[in-house]
Each structure stands twice: as structure tokens, then as C-alpha cells.
Amino acid sequence: MTLSVALGPDTQEGTRTGTAEATDSLTAPDIPWNLVIWNDPVNLMSYVSYVFQSYFGYSESKANKLMMEVHRKGRSIVAHGSKEQVERHAVAMHGFGLWATVEKASGGPGGNSGKSGGPGQGKGKRG
């Protein structure tokens, strides 16, 4: 992401969310899919935070924390849910121009072992 002429949002390092709140939503075993946002050198930090706040309804501090995670670590899991839910989010993110992918929660780095299943699962025809 890029920081432009106008001042970007605070990084909120001082108010980092404690683990208690994070684990609460991250380890629910019945929510097996993640929505991942990837870093790129074009999208403005302010715009990414705006999208997280306006689309997901996240607080300013949560949106900025996720935005900084994308910026520093290259990617961040910003939402969980059923396959259909995260795919709907992904299309919305692509509409905003953010680079979003979906993955099984047990899959990529930072994920957790939800329902275990082979890589072929979850690709069935929909609708």
C-alpha cells in the first residue's frame, strides 16, 4: 500500500487488541473459510481503511490494525465465514479494487485448523 501526501491514519499500535478478543472469533470451528487481503504498492492506506470500515462496519481502530497488518506482513485475514459468505466479500473487495482471495481456514499461514479436509473439498458446483 502507499501513503500519500495527506496524512494517513494512526497505526493504533498503542491500543493493540488483546489475544482474548482475537481468539474468540478466530478459532470458531464451524467457520472454515477466510477472506484474505493482499498488499500492493498502489492502494492507499486511507482507502483500505475506509473500505474495511464502510463495508464490514469495523471500528476505525480495528480497520487500521488490519490495514497495517496487510501493509507490514503482506496479507491479512479480514473476515471469516462460510464459503459463500467469503466469496461474496471477495467480489465486493474486487469491486473496490482491493486484491482479495479466499482460502480454507486450515490452509494458509496464519490460518487455524478448523474442519480438516483434503484440498479437493469445497470446490463443488454451487447453485
Binding site: V5, A6, P9, L44, S46, Y47, Y50, S54
Partner: peptide, 9 residues
């Protein structure tokens, strides 16, 4: 875009 988004925020 940055100016606009700051106003939107």
C-alpha cells in the same frame, strides 16, 4: 483520491 477518502473517513 487521497483528499476525497480523507473527507469520506
Amino acid at each position: 483520491q487521497e483528499s476525497l477518502v480523507q473527507a469520506m473517513l
